[in-house]
Nucleic acid binder design. Structure first.
Lengths: 289, 289
DNA sequence: GATATTCATGCGTTTTTAGCACTAAAGTGT
DNA sequence: ACACTTTAGTGCTAAAAACGCATGAATATC
């Protein structure tokens, strides 16, 4: 049973004519006639009595008409409302990211984003586990590092580069050391390769006596003076600005695997809700150099 | 947009599974999957987020679900109610017949018929005009005499035979007269042919000094003693029983045109409402010998 | 880690629908 | 009273949609 046919029925009942209702719906009159006939077959009762030139609602037709009309309208309105919901950034946007990224990067952006989308609520789920986007009803996740292989869509936010930072400038006259005592991220690389301004390559072995599983805490350990650390660019902006941390080997290039970046990850590409699009656009704009 | 698909959507949302909902609807899971996809295309937004093994309502899906569900139920109930309306003799039955037939035949039947269908109202439109069944919303008409040529369905109630009746037995020893002073129905035959019990044929010329356009009034004229009259069988039952009228030529056969009868006439034969069927059955049963 | 469940898709077949031309009948206007 | 116009409905054919089945991919589950 077709909803459009029910709407057509309503219009036929209103106008008292297949031809007029067909014109409203941009249909050939014969199509209107046949659709109503099919509707009657589906329903199991006759809606109109017909002569070759006139139609009249049957008793059941009248009854059915008055009963379904408000509900047809309601369903149509529900559809409209739902369309608006995906067309405008309203409703609830569920975002997940690592605690560190959320704290360091997202939090400062949120006041302005929330102001730009007044009818939107944001639920920021900060966790260092990779949770299931579907089950948790996540609209968009921010994932760092390797691009996750999945059916989800990924768009790049910004490249991520790691450099060695510490409390004080590296002043050893012999230049880049062969090994360095560092605070490390759990499971991080054990060596980094640098290229000096003049082109020479230096491999630095990273000795770690303290491995931390949280980027923020790791940074704090570095600033507290435990040891230098290999830290991502996004984590150290303010510390570089106020001098709390300094680049140990400025001018050196760090060779890193390609596509090390921050990514938006979200399900599918058809019908991306506008709240998701709005968030992605806003954040990307603010974080791109 | 298909109503069944909307119901399917509701069940999928409830069970959280295409396969389960498909089983409920006796569908192949792939059909369920495709119907929901088509529904999403029609609606313009995505109802579920999917992985290969799980689905979850999107935010719009949830919103849409809760908004349309009661209306879907309401439409379904409207259909059920309408089906019941045609399946049981309830509602309003509009009947038209001639005033005479209504007075003489239908009126006595109505108490019992109404009792047999307690939820039915009857509107008895007695008129000697042949009104338009469609325009007036008539469910069933009773027409006497020649079968009307039309797109309507006709079923026979009972044969109609005309005989000559008067206040007193015909006692002329010479038997059937060649001509007879009669009260006639407007436009009625001017002669009748009788066959005696022994087989002899007698043509009686009907002389009319009074023609009446209403059968009841005509009968009354006869009983009042104006003259004998050519009256239909259905009109004289009680008068024959109580002796007010007598058959002038008992034992004689009256030759009449074929198919002179009382007919039910009603629009179409598909989806005859049960109130119409009930009425036709009841009346036919009571009037058949 | 093997198995089975679940959603999705490709493909050939069947069913449904649209569009057009045409018929029959009934209003409409002169 | 007559021609004209409008309206509902029907054949017919081409196009579109839906179905059922087999198959594939991914992920729960035991």
């Amino acid at each position: 049973m077709n909803i459009e046919s029910l709407h057509l029925f309503v219009d036929v009942a209103r106008t008292g004519s297949f031809a007029k209702a067909a014109a409203v719906h941009r249909l050939d009159p014969s199509v209107a006639s046949r659709r109503i006939s099919k509707l009657e077959r589906d329903l199991g009762f006759r809606l109109f009595q017909r002569t070759t030139r006139t139609i009249a609602l049957t008793e059941v037709g009248t009854e059915f008409f008055s009963r379904i009309e408000p509900h047809l309208i309601a369903i149509h309105e529900a559809q409209q409302a739902a369309r608006d919901l995906v067309a405008q950034p309203i409703g609830v946007l569920r975002v997940t990211a690592s605690t560190s990224f959320g704290y360091e990067i997202l939090s400062p952006l949120l006041p302005e984003f929330l102001a730009s989308a007044p009818r939107l609520r944001v639920e920021l789920m900060l966790t260092d586990r990779r949770i299931n986007l579907i089950e948790e009803g996540i609209d968009v996740a921010i994932r760092l590092g390797e691009l996750p292989d999945s059916e989800f869509v990924a768009t790049k936010i910004m490249p991520i580069t790691f450099r060695l930072y510490g409390r004080e400038k590296w002043s050893d006259a012999s230049g880049v050391p062969e090994q360095l005592e560092c605070v490390t991220y759990t499971g991080a690389a054990e060596a980094v390769r640098l290229r000096s301004p003049v082109g020479s390559i230096h491999d630095v072995k990273v000795n770690s006596r303290l491995a931390v599983s949280n980027a923020l805490a790791m940074k704090r350990c570095v600033t507290m003076g435990v040891a230098p650390g290999l830290l991502p660019n996004w984590l150290v902006k303010s510390e570089l600005a106020d001098g709390t941390l300094v680049d140990l080997f400025p001018g050196y290039d760090y060779r890193s695997e390609p596509d090390r970046a921050a990514w938006f990850v979200y399900p599918t590409r058809l019908y991306v809700p506008s709240k998701v699009r709005a968030f992605i656009e806003f954040v990307t704009k603010r974080l791109s150099p």
